[in-house]
């Protein structure tokens, strides 16, 4: 019969329509912003800089090696090295970025900066509500806007942060052990 399949199709539509009132399966949308989906753990939006402790200047892990600046495909990172040095988490003196800007109107959230950073200093944020009225200044994130504590990183990417923390702690312990051994050797030699 002509139209039979159309009626069958209508039945499918009706099933979906009425089903959406009862079955969560068929109603997949949520009413943002009142309702929110829980973000996935690996979600990435824009990069931020991690700092340890509670001083956002001193605790910054970034050593201004500029690898990420070079590797960033659309070239949206801008770094100026500092003139002086400050101790890093292992206690070694290191440079730090005097300026660290990311132009997030250019950034394409590709995570390449995170992958190439050898110091686990830059990580991806999950924050996405970044709309601003200022087209230029508002989308140029400077160092103090980028710096976020390690606790924050642990909260948004727990698994990855745990691995990083473990690795850094291991490195620190090794560095300390080495320093201790060197000191002991020194005293023994005396």
């Amino acid at each position: 019969m002509l139209g039979e399949q159309i009626i069958k199709g209508m039945a499918v539509t009706a099933r979906n329509f009425f089903g959406s009132y009862v079955s969560k399966e068929r109603l997949t949308t949520v009413q943002y912003p009142e309702e929110r989906l829980t973000p996935k753990e690996n979600t990435r939006q824009f990069p931020f800089l991690v700092y340890d402790g509670d001083d956002r200047e001193k605790g910054l892990r970034c050593v201004a090696c500029q690898i990420c600046e070079k590797e960033c495909p659309p070239q949206c990172i801008y770094i100026v090295k500092s003139k002086d040095k400050k101790p890093d988490y292992k206690g070694q003196p290191q440079l730090y970025p005097a300026t660290f800007d990311i132009d997030i109107s250019v950034c394409m959230s590709c995570q390449i900066c995170v992958e190439v950073c050898p110091f686990d200093a830059i990580k991806m944020d999950t924050e996405f509500e970044l709309s601003t009225g200022d087209r230029f200044g508002g989308l140029l994130l400077t160092k103090d806007k980028l710096a976020k504590p390690n606790e924050y990183y642990r909260r948004i990417h727990p698994t990855a942060a745990a691995a990083v923390d473990e690795r850094l702690a291991g490195e620190k312990a090794r560095a300390e052990a080495k320093a201790k051994a060197a000191a002991e050797a020194k005293t023994a030699a005396l």
Binding site: N16, T28, K40, E41, N42, M108, S109, C110
Partner: peptide, 24 residues
Amino acid sequence: YAFREREKILDLFESVSGARMMCN
């Protein structure tokens, strides 16, 4: 309907790669 199903696949992509469409 297609988008409803696609979203499930994109969710899978997001949970491994971090992004729904620009997986990299």
